[in-house]
Design a protein around this nucleic acid. Structure first.
Lengths: 228, 228
DNA sequence: CGATCGTTTGATTACGTTCAATCGTTGTGG
DNA sequence: CCACAACGATTGAACGTAATCAAACGATCG
């Protein structure tokens, strides 16, 4: 692993909580692997025996239906860990993971991790915090699916990519629109139309870059029940 | 606590994993409390300092919107624990909890629990397993909201209450239909209509008891994309 | 007995899907 | 180098599902 990779690694909350020494003991030379765009990392139903950290690139987590349809549940970016908790249950991944862009991904072996937790129990707190954060995000997603319209969900997605709280902002869409659409629970056609509706709220789309005229105005739109 | 209460307690996976001794150390005489129907257990945004086990009754977990609207995210029954993971994150409950029926609920103090985990690290595995199970359920719920129709979601809900895999079955609806509707992400009116549509698949509703003519047939209905 | 609450039913509207065609960009092979 | 496929994105028209507004129904409780 390069120094750059290590710096990404140690910025992740889970490994920061572990400390440098423990992290080093869990990370072997052959721990990181490159994945091509579209390559699968694990499949729903596989025995869950590891957790992952994205060094570079991004990963979609999705459920596979019998029909072959994919339902995207989360999209993770560089610096984020995923699949932390699955290994502690029955032992099967409840979803599949696939690289959305060319990625470098670190794999932490489950057995080694469990062993380390027994020796360093405070590590369990970091694991539980990570799981708790994912729970919170899923709660938010469920809330959005249940009560927010398609344009509102898009607005929320955009605002999450923005750091400022008011005034203008520019956002670069991080991946294909069809993927974002799936993640937000709508068809690509609906996504396109819903996005167009945001024009009246000062959102200008051009290619994969989005300009928001006033972040505060868009934020306000996400809160109203009657979107007009 | 009565012997009955102890037996419920020790059947819960989390406490079974703890063992009798540790459980006893965490459970004080004044640990259980009765809640009236509609009484709140904790509120979204409150400092998360405890986890709960339902000895008797049931509890809804919901997000509160600024508008005052409630979005039900999960409903727990007797024997189940909830809010295990929240205390390990920032420290605020990401949702509110309220007793749906008169309930007896056991409260486990967060600080005591954290202390115990440090002494008995294998307890962390049980906590992580509990969190993992909730994660899985939320994933399933998201999938359902995204790709299943209202009648299908109702069918799935009914089938979860049933033990047999084929043939006829009877289900007693465990709480108000409006609550189930909210949990499934629809309005009470839509719930009523969607339920009526299930008649053609051998589902007969009468008051709060439901008769399923053939469980296998209804299961098949939940899998199809074109519901006819 | 009348009030209230939960549920159902009816009519209408709004939203997102579906199917289909088009457009623009990218990339490839002749 | 250009032509043409291939893909992602957009647009259009028709459809279906669930939401909304409103009323009626039935059971329960005071």
């Amino acid at each position: 692993m390069t120094a750059d990779e290590w710096s990404v690694l140690m910025r992740a909350p889970l490994f920061k909580a572990m400390g440098l020494e423990i992290t080093r003991s869990l990370v072997q030379t052959r721990s990181t692997r490159a994945y091509a765009r579209g390559e699968r990392i694990f499949q729903q139903g596989d025995p869950a025996d590891a957790l992952f950290l994205i060094i570079e690139g991004c990963v979609k987590l999705y459920r596979e239906r019998e029909s072959g349809e994919q339902v995207v549940v989360a999209i993770f970016a560089a610096g984020e860990t995923f699949a932390e908790a699955a290994m502690f249950l029955s032992g099967d991944y409840p979803a599949s993971a696939e690289a959305v862009s060319p990625s470098r991904i670190l794999r932490i072996d489950g057995n080694a991790l469990r062993h380390t937790i027994l020796q360093q129990p405070q590590l369990a707190f970091a694991m539980l915090a990570a799981a708790s954060l994912h729970l919170k995000h899923l709660l938010e997603q469920i809330e959005q699916l249940k009560v927010q319209s398609a344009p509102q969900r898009i607005a929320i997605f955009l605002l999450k990519q923005v750091s400022v709280t008011s005034g203008p902002a520019d956002v670069a869409l991080p991946y294909e629109k069809a993927l974002i659409a799936n993640r937000l629970g709508m068809k690509p056609e609906s996504f396109s139309r819903a996005f167009a509706k945001l024009r009246e709220f000062g959102v200008i789309v051009e290619r994969d870059s989005v300009h928001i005229r006033d972040v505060a105005r868009l934020t306000k739109f996400t809160a109203v029940s009657n979107d007009t």
